[in-house]
């Protein structure tokens, strides 16, 4: 119920924005190759479905695969670095440095090294996904409560039990924050990697559209990138709510 009560505000804001855009475009007579009106974009989105649906599916596939690889490596790296503190001291600064390399610069290099296949694209998505998830998970491990740790040690838990029964569940909320960021990044990463050279994908569709001044198609592409990010986000929030049930139940307090 609460969601319906507050949910209309952003929806109304978007509708208002679209309306202003539509009206302003008509009144000022802006040519459609410069800025198409929302109605024109919508028409193109409906009419061009057959043209771009393959692009869309290929991007979804690439995103999911890249996200899966990137987050797996991110989580695995976080676990390793957490369990081996010396390794963490060595690698952690390098990890931060690696994030300062602009992906846009790195991407053409990857194409030179690995060609136009799927590998350089997956590397790009992995690179953008990896960092948020690894850092978030590592931070999660650090939030382990000293009281609980003390209890488990006194009760005779070994290192493995402490990890699985205490540190891993402690890190889950942070891990999911990282997943949410990675999810949106991975869509971006996929599109950027497709700009560089691919047969299919929203990125390809977008480059073709902009080089032929089909601005309406560029907007269709932007629209679908946003929808993809949003869907991805929603899926992760849904899983999060299932996994971390204990967090919000505390609201109904006793005594």
């Amino acid at each position: 119920m609460k969601r319906i009560k507050t949910g209309w505000r952003p929806v109304a804001a978007i509708l208002l924005l679209l309306l202003v855009w539509e009206v302003a475009g008509r009144v000022a007579e802006i040519p459609s190759w410069l800025l198409p009106a929302p109605s024109q974009i919508w028409m193109e989105a409906v009419a061009g479905w057959e043209d771009y649906k393959l692009h869309l599916f290929s991007t979804i596939q690439l995103t999911l695969l890249g996200f899966l690889i990137g987050t797996s490596i991110g989580i695995a790296a976080a676990v390793c670095l957490h369990l081996l503190p010396k390794l963490r001291q060595t690698i952690y600064p390098l990890m931060i440095l690696s994030q300062n390399i602009p992906i846009i610069v790195l991407a053409p290099l990857l194409v030179i090294w690995f060609g136009f296949g799927i590998l350089p694209k997956l590397i790009i998505i992995t690179l953008v996904c990896f960092f948020p998830i690894a850092v978030a998970t590592l931070d999660g491990f650090r939030q382990t409560s000293p009281d609980l740790l003390h209890y488990l040690k006194m009760a005779g838990a070994d290192k493995r039990q402490i990890f699985w029964k205490l540190e891993w569940p402690t890190s889950l909320p942070s891990l999911f924050s990282g997943l949410k960021i990675s999810a949106t990044y991975s869509v971006m990463g996929a599109v950027i990697s497709e700009w560089l050279g691919a047969q299919q994908g929203i990125g390809v569709y977008m480059t073709l559209a902009s080089s032929s001044f089909r601005t309406d198609r560029v907007f269709v592409a932007i629209f679908f990138i946003m929808v993809l990010c949003l869907l991805f986000f929603i899926v992760i929030i849904t899983i999060e709510k299932r996994v971390i049930r204990w967090k919000k139940k505390g609201v109904e307090q006793h005594g």
Binding site: L148, M154, A155, D158, K165, I244
Partner: peptide, 26 residues
């Protein structure tokens, strides 16, 4: 380690476990 059963000053229950799962932890 693990030769005694212990009760600390703070209850130290694991927040993600139900009470039943918590009392069976030892």
């Amino acid at each position: 380690r693990g030769a005694i059963s212990y009760m600390p000053q703070s209850p130290s229950l694991l927040p993600w476990r139900t009470v039943l799962e918590n009392v069976m932890l030892g």
